[in-house]
Amino acid sequence: MKTIVTTNSRTETDMQHEVSGFLFTVVSASALIIGIWGVACLVGGLVSGGFMSLVKGYLTALTGM
């Protein structure tokens, strides 16, 4: 004897959850890129003039003197 089974599958998508997950990924990737850029700039400043020159330039930028 064979039994016929009918199944109905339905998929519901929570759009707010999907959009917030996507935006979280975009913001996290942007923060990562900005962080890498900041580290690259710091390393470039250290290589070009040394630590003391970097500190002097930072203090000059803060005080304007």
Results as ranks from 00 to 15, higher is better:
residue 1 M to A: 14
residue 2 K to W: 08
residue 2 K to V: 07
residue 3 T to W: 11
residue 4 I to R: 14
residue 4 I to K: 14
residue 6 T to Y: 10
residue 6 T to E: 15
residue 6 T to R: 15
residue 7 T to P: 00
residue 8 N to A: 15
residue 8 N to E: 15
residue 9 S to Y: 10
residue 9 S to T: 03
residue 9 S to H: 11
residue 9 S to C: 08
residue 10 R to G: 06
residue 10 R to E: 14
residue 12 E to I: 03
residue 13 T to H: 12
residue 14 D to F: 05
residue 14 D to R: 04
residue 15 M to D: 11
residue 15 M to C: 08
residue 15 M to K: 10
residue 17 H to G: 12
residue 18 E to K: 09
residue 18 E to W: 07
residue 19 V to I: 15
residue 20 S to Y: 13
residue 21 G to Q: 08
residue 21 G to T: 00
residue 22 F to D: 03
residue 22 F to Q: 10
residue 23 L to R: 05
residue 23 L to D: 03
residue 25 T to Y: 10
residue 25 T to A: 13
residue 26 V to W: 04
residue 27 V to K: 07
residue 27 V to S: 05
residue 27 V to W: 07
residue 29 A to R: 13
residue 29 A to M: 08
residue 30 S to V: 00
residue 30 S to N: 11
residue 30 S to A: 09
residue 31 A to V: 01
residue 33 I to L: 12
residue 33 I to R: 07
residue 33 I to S: 07
residue 34 I to L: 13
residue 34 I to C: 01
residue 36 I to H: 01
residue 36 I to M: 06
residue 37 W to T: 00
residue 37 W to G: 03
residue 38 G to R: 03
residue 38 G to Y: 04
residue 38 G to N: 10
residue 39 V to Q: 02
residue 39 V to A: 08
residue 40 A to L: 07
residue 40 A to Q: 09
residue 41 C to W: 13
residue 41 C to F: 11
residue 41 C to I: 00
residue 43 V to K: 02
residue 44 G to D: 09
residue 45 G to Q: 06
residue 45 G to N: 03
residue 46 L to Q: 02
residue 47 V to K: 12
residue 47 V to E: 12
residue 47 V to Q: 10
residue 48 S to W: 11
residue 48 S to Y: 12
residue 49 G to Q: 06
residue 50 G to P: 05
residue 50 G to Y: 03
residue 50 G to T: 04
residue 51 F to H: 01
residue 51 F to S: 07
residue 53 S to P: 04
residue 53 S to N: 13
residue 53 S to I: 03
residue 54 L to E: 08
residue 55 V to L: 07
residue 55 V to N: 00
residue 58 Y to W: 12
residue 58 Y to H: 07
residue 58 Y to M: 04
residue 59 L to R: 10
residue 59 L to F: 13
residue 59 L to S: 06
residue 60 T to F: 14
residue 61 A to Y: 05
residue 63 T to L: 09
residue 63 T to P: 01
residue 63 T to C: 01
